[in-house]
Amino acid sequence: MTREKLQSLSLVLIGVIAFGLPLLVRSPTYLHILVLLFLYAYLTTSWNLVGGFAGVLPLGHSTFVGIGAYTSTVLALQYGVSPWIGMIIGGGLAVIVGVLIGLPTFKMRGAYFALATIAFAEGIRVMVENIEYLGPFKLNGPRGLQIPPLNTGLANFMFAEKEPYYYIILVMLIAVLALTYFISRSKLGYYLSAGGEEPEAAMALGVNVARCKLIAMAMSSFLTALAGTFWAQFTLFIHPKSVMSLDISFEIAFIALIGGRGSIAGPVLGAIILRPVSDLCRIYFGDKLPGLHLIIFGVLLIVVMIFQPRGLQEPLTKLYNRFLDRFAAQPDRIR
């Protein structure tokens, strides 16, 4: 077996395991944890287009989750629009907001950029918390919106069981991973990494760094908003604290940094490591030590940054490559 074949075989195997997991995991609790795991892997992969490849640290992606969740929910509740259509409209709206936030903020670097994105995200959350009606649209302020679980089924993006949600988010995750892989090998991917690492040199080589970052931001906002709609349909109840809170943005950043920014596997690995920590802490220590998971994240981040500054994907990728080298049949080398 050649190396390439072994590699695709191992990826297919991972895919089969992912698709077959609900047959083994029957408990709704654990399925719920898995759905959130994939949701965060999806969110972080979307974030990674800007935060990883373009080399900046946006900490306001919760805004786009919120925009996606509110847009589809308001359209469904007031006008009976299918959440699938609302999902796309929410994505479009997030692109507009993302570009408007990106235009002024991409001129800043490092901590200034991160702080500016936090400011925008918090500003929008506080506004939504204080708005009952935005024009004809009922946002219902801090009380949020509830989606009555009346018409379940694929067309309404609403299910009584957890399994359909599991498969939907899994497909979304695979799609966004494929997109990331494609972009990382394209001109845009090269330009984003170049502009993120040495903007002056990139500009001298014909890269319009600011425009590339805006394109990445637009894509990232769109994809993040889709996850917002998924979240709304999964929980059937949204309020500003649940879908626009900074906690979401921070958790995405933690997952990305610990898993490995700017890599394809990093966000997935990060989510696999951090999400169970977060959920199990809430289950077992939620009453005595709320917030314990954040302390564990902090400690993990410090340890990872000291020993593997490029994230856990680096040693794991090396291990994976060694495994491929070991078990792939060596083609005859003639010197």
Partner: peptide, 22 residues
């Protein structure tokens, strides 16, 4: 550039491809 500005985390080929994509 007088002070060289390579894309350090990327391979030599990657660096040159950024230029040839123009």
């Amino acid at each position: 550039f007088q002070i060289v500005k390579p894309f350090s985390s990327k391979t030599v080929l990657y660096n040159v491809m950024v230029g040839s994509y123009v």
